[in-house]
């Protein structure tokens, strides 16, 4: 067990029952939104969680913040399993994990001043900071690059980037150990996005907070993360240190994902060989047997019958730092080596 880890997630699951109609048997089927996810997060580190929409990355984040209850597995924070906390214990746990949401327009109450919004977590937790609540809020406003006189303003008076700063101030107000950032910069313009990414990194440097950074934008994830986990249909298919994963992706899905990111370099774009995935993400209610990625895998078509049988009937071992969740990762590396 990693002693440095602030957060350890083991075999985390979230299965949603599909409610049948009047005449169909109840609870006969489930959507496995998150299915056996394991990772750990070090103190002061950032874990990037990437994948396409519907892969379960947000559900994972929400379970860590206990906005959703897991249906299986453990979430250890500081060595304590928080996945089944309730009542008083859950209330106390809220100080440790906070969340930053994607949409800065929807995550702030339009009828509440930003001062009230930022103070809310401290009020709920009955914390009276030295110097008073109002002063603490003003400090927080300055810390996130806003002005103390913004205290009495309403969310509509701010731009998207500024609202996201308010959301960040609210999240750091309780000095949490972990902040789950769910697509925090996706709704922002590029120039403003860079401001917010820099702010998050500054805060991490100053306070030593750990981030779970959920995003679909791989360029941003590469920029901010220390470790990266790639999710597909509720499972982690590959994880590893940022540099390794981006330099030498080993799972065909990671390769395809990286290959699909448009880069601001027209000459390279014209020359590059691209891996194109066919079709869309399969329905998580009815995932493919064996390896969940096999229906879209660029490697699958090149395999012989025996190798395919492995993909169709056997679920690959969960991804670890040493190997991705792929039966043929060695082949994948070789076959797709020349392809960017």
């Amino acid at each position: 067990m990693d002693t440095q880890a602030i957060l350890q997630v083991e075999n985390l699951q979230k299965h949603f029952p599909i409610k049948g109609g009047l005449f169909s048997p109840q609870g006969s089927k489930t959507v496995k939104a998150v299915d056996g996810v394991s990772f750990s997060l070090g103190r002061g580190q950032t874990l990037g969680l990437v994948g396409e929409s519907g892969c379960g990355k947000s559900t994972t984040g929400r379970m860590i913040a206990r906005l959703m209850d897991p249906t299986g597995g453990r979430i250890m924070i500081d060595g304590v399993d928080i996945s089944k906390l309730g009542g008083r214990d859950l209330y106390n746990f809220r100080r440790k994990v906070q969340m930053i949401f994607q949409d800065p327009f929807a995550s702030l109450n339009p009828r509440q001043t930003v001062g009230t919004a930022i103070a809310a977590p401290m009020v709920v937790q009955k914390i009276t900071p030295t110097g008073g609540l109002k002063n603490r809020v003003k400090e927080l406003l300055e810390q996130v690059g806003l002005k103390p006189e913004h205290y009495n303003r309403f969310p509509h008076e701010f731009s998207g980037g500024q609202r996201q700063r308010v959301g960040i101030a609210r999240a750091i107000s309780l000095n949490p150990s972990v902040i789950v950032c769910d697509e925090p910069v996706s709704a922002l313009d590029v120039s403003v996005q860079a401001q917010v990414v820099n702010l998050l990194q500054e805060i991490q440097r100053d306070t030593g907070v750990s981030y779970i950074f959920i995003a679909h934008d791989l360029s941003v994830v590469r920029h901010i993360s220390h470790e990266v986990a790639v999710m597909y249909l509720g499972k982690i298919v590959e994880k590893g240190s940022r540099d390794e994963l981006f330099r030498e992706p080993r799972h065909p899905y990671t390769k395809a994902l990286l290959s699909a990111v448009p880069q601001p370099d027209p000459k390279a774009a014209r020359q590059q060989q691209k891996i194109r995935l066919r079709g869309d993400l399969p329905s998580p209610a009815n995932p493919p047997s064996g390896c969940v990625f096999r229906t879209r895998c660029p490697l699958f078509g090149t395999l012989d019958a025996e190798q395919r049988e492995l993909c169709i009937n056997h679920i690959p071992a969960p991804a670890s730092a040493a190997a991705p969740a792929c039966h043929h990762s060695g082949l994948a590396a070789a076959a797709l080596a020349g392809v960017q």
Partner: peptide, 14 residues
């Protein structure tokens, strides 16, 4: 201000 897949990962310049 754009982070890229192959650029340096220093501070972004917003």
């Amino acid at each position: 201000s754009m982070p890229t897949l192959n650029g340096s990962s220093g501070k972004l310049n917003p």
